[in-house]
Design a protein around this nucleic acid. Structure first.
Lengths: 171, 171
DNA sequence: CCTCTATCGTTGAACACTCAATCTCGATGG
DNA sequence: CCATCGAGATTGAGTGTTCAACGATAGAGG
């Protein structure tokens, strides 16, 4: 017996288009950042989150959450970023299991240098292709999905006015 | 001077929501396939494309295109799939640079076994979260993006009635 | 027939991510 | 005070991806 709720033709078309769009889009974003800024997109996100934090400093676990990384991934990533001199790790005094990650001035400079090219790419691959109505719909859809996939109201809740796309800590 | 077309708050919100949704969604899809079918999503797609091809056979280059893989990635992937006994490679007589990839019966069986769980996951992470209107909008948006990102009318053109979501070669 | 260029496909090294195991330390409860 | 449990973070092995380089063959032009 087959209880599977298979996709109908229309759903399948939607799924495949979404899949294709998503791949092509992020492939471009990834390649641009790798070529011009020498970092994968995941690392860029980490730098962005740090740049938005008070003192550009965050606990590793918090940073993992806000940058959508597993702890393991973040550990490996921050190790790399530390080698590059873009991030520093220091022990946490009040909770000695913990560690702080801080964006260095070099890291901030690297982010600043990377931002324009990245943002231009995001605009060119995403917003330049969509009408205002489509962009609005995409926001709506994405937020629905995030809500659905996190069992949370709608958005990571916490402080999040941040800038990824806006000039990092601009002004 | 700063010529960068920075994202405004609304665009940023859209971009971040899209990013987050995309990550959460594909993380789940990936994990489900890895856990239950012992293959990454990329391999699943390769098997699907082969399953839809005449004689379940495709030239490597064609397979690379339809499965959105780089040549290199496909080579590595097919090497793995061959070890698993799911795909076979044979030389091409008419073009001796070329190679055919064929889905074996074991490969087809593996795909058949993997499909229900995968499709159920796709439904639960995507379609269950969206209203019909949202799903329609997502299709529209995705096709716009694909068109934009490929400089092609709207869709890979070629034969593409296929089944990924539908029971593979069902009925 | 010969050369030049482009395509087909593979390879190995470098790198990022996942998973499971591990270590340290805080918190809780007797 | 001690035991237990759970959280914070790291590690190493395994795997997949990218990139650049390569070898082989087809096709075009002289």
């Amino acid at each position: 017996m087959d209880h599977t709720r298979w996709l109908d033709d229309d759903e399948q078309r939607t799924w495949r288009a979404f899949l294709t769009a998503q791949r092509l889009l992020f492939e471009r974003v990834e390649r641009q950042l790798q070529n011009e800024a020498k970092m994968p997109h995941g690392y860029y996100e980490i730098l962005v989150r740090l740049s938005e934090a008070p003192d550009r400093t965050l606990r590793m676990s918090r940073l993992a959450d806000t940058s959508l990384s597993s702890r393991s991934r973040l550990s490996h990533a921050v190790a790399r970023l530390e080698e590059a001199g873009w991030v520093e790790r220091t022990a946490c005094e009040t909770d000695r299991r913990g560690a702080w990650a801080r964006l260095t001035d070099e890291g901030f400079a690297a982010l600043r240098a990377a931002a324009p090219g990245h943002v231009e790419t995001v605009r060119s691959v995403l917003f330049d292709a969509l009408s205002p109505e489509q962009a609005a719909a995409l926001q709506d859809i994405s937020e629905s999905l995030v809500g659905h996939l996190t069992n949370r109201p709608v958005w990571p809740a916490e402080s999040d006015a941040g800038a990824d796309g806006a000039c990092p800590e601009a002004g």
